[in-house]
Each structure stands twice: as structure tokens, then as C-alpha cells.
């Protein structure tokens, strides 16, 4: 554990909590892509199956359980409790495509051809692109509530901080995992436009609206 990973994990945790608070307080999931949330739930489920087979630390186990539980809770809020507020007609990204491509890539490019390793690799590839339905939805509506943009900023920063963690681990521990690193770079890259808008608009107290 190094400082980049710790701040990255805290940023990830903050993102999830911000999202739950937004939905719970406003009693609405308006502006949130249910498809991205479904993909994140699939990511956590496939990656954290090792919860039952591989103990790392109390910290690791606690975080995994929290991420799993909170993602299922988010899905419940969006598709059941507050489903009347879900903007289904704006959430039209073909997310099946992301799953298919991630499955194929995981079968072709992995560290070891075993069930757990392929599930882990699939979760890494899928996570890299899981935000696309959400970003697509914002592009379609042309705006996002400020709390939604805080959520996205925290969520995007998390993988960016992980890149710093991987650079650190490469130099200090000699550890380098290309699958995680390249996917993390793609994942962070997808947020570039959003980061620019966030810094130039939301941080100055304006709403996040896309230039026409």
C-alpha cells in the first residue's frame, strides 16, 4: 500500500458514497446511467469472487464487501425503488457491445488461461469502458447536475491515482502488470474531456453544460 493507492481508493469510495447520497437525498436517479451502474456491478462481482478464496488483508476484504454491497444497493435504487425517475430514454448506449468486446479480449489477452484469471481480466477490461454509457448520457442531455459531476470527478480520479501507484510499484517493488496499467490508462483517458469541463466550469461554480 502506498499513498497513491490509498488516496485512489478513498476517491473511489467517495464517488460511490456521493452517488448513493445523491440518489437517496433527492429520491431520484435522474441523470444517472443505470447501464454504467450495471456494468460496475458486473465488474465488482467478477473481480471480487476471490473474496472467498484469497485473503489479502482486513482492509482489502472490507473494501471489497463495501463496493459489492453498495453497487447492488445502487442497482436496487435505480431499477426498483426509484425506477420512475430513471431516464431510460436517455440511457441508450449499446452496452452489450462493451461486454462482448471485454469477454473476447479477456479470452485472448490474459496472464493465465484459468477461470478466475479470465474473470479478473474481464473485470479490468470492462471497468475501463464501463463509464461510457454515463458519459454518452451526459452528451445526449448536454448537462449534468453538479453532484453528478462531483461523482464522476471522484470516480475518474481514482484510476488516474492508480496509474501513479503502478509507476511507484514499478520503481519500488519491480512490479508491473501491463493488463492493469494499459486498461487504467484507457479508463482515465476516457475522462479527459470531462475533467477539462469539470475544472473549467464546475470548480468555478458553474453548471456542467456542454458547449453546443
Amino acid at each position: 500500500m502506498n499513498v497513491f493507492r490509498l488516496i485512489g481508493d478513498m476517491s473511489h469510495l467517495a464517488a460511490i458514497i456521493i452517488l448513493l447520497i445523491k440518489i437517496w437525498r433527492s429520491r431520484s436517479c435522474s441523470g444517472i446511467s443505470g447501464k454504467s451502474q450495471l456494468l460496475f456491478t458486473a465488474v465488482f462481482t467478477c473481480r471480487y469472487l476471490d473474496l472467498f478464496t484469497n485473503f489479502v488483508s482486513i482492509y482489502n476484504t472490507t473494501m471489497k464487501i463495501f463496493f459489492l454491497a453498495s453497487s447492488y444497493a445502487t442497482i436496487y435504487l435505480i431499477f426498483m425503488k426509484f425506477k420512475a425517475t430513471y431516464n431510460r430514454n436517455h440511457d441508450t448506449f449499446r452496452f452489450e457491445l462493451l461486454i462482448v468486446v471485454s469477454v473476447i479480449l479477456a479470452l485472448l489477452i490474459n496472464h493465465e488461461f484459468s477461470a478466475t484469471e479470465i474473470l479478473w481480466t474481464f473485470s479490468i477490461y470492462l471497468e475501463a469502458v464501463a463509464i461510457l454509457p454515463q458519459l454518452f448520457m451526459i452528451t445526449k442531455t448536454g448537462e449534468a447536475e453538479s453532484i453528478t459531476s462531483h461523482y464522476l470527478f471522484a470516480l475518474g480520479s481514482y484510476r488516474g491515482l492508480y496509474i501513479l501507484n503502478w509507476i511507484y510499484r514499478y520503481y519500488v517493488e519491480g512490479h508491473l502488470d501491463w493488463i492493469a496499467v494499459l486498461s487504467g490508462i484507457v479508463q482515465t483517458g476516457l475522462y479527459c474531456d470531462f475533467f477539462y469541463l469539470y475544472i473549467t466550469r464546475v470548480m468555478k461554480g458553474k453548471n456542467l453544460t456542454l458547449p453546443a
Binding site: V56, M63, K64, F67, H111, E112, W120, D177, I179, A180
Partner: peptide, 10 residues
């Protein structure tokens, strides 16, 4: 194996 070292990450 080396890839197992990534599994301590979230």
C-alpha cells in the same frame, strides 16, 4: 506468480 501481485489492489 507475478500477476497475483495485482490481486491485492481493488
Amino acid at each position: 506468480k507475478d500477476s497475483s501481485k495485482s490481486k491485492d489492489e481493488l
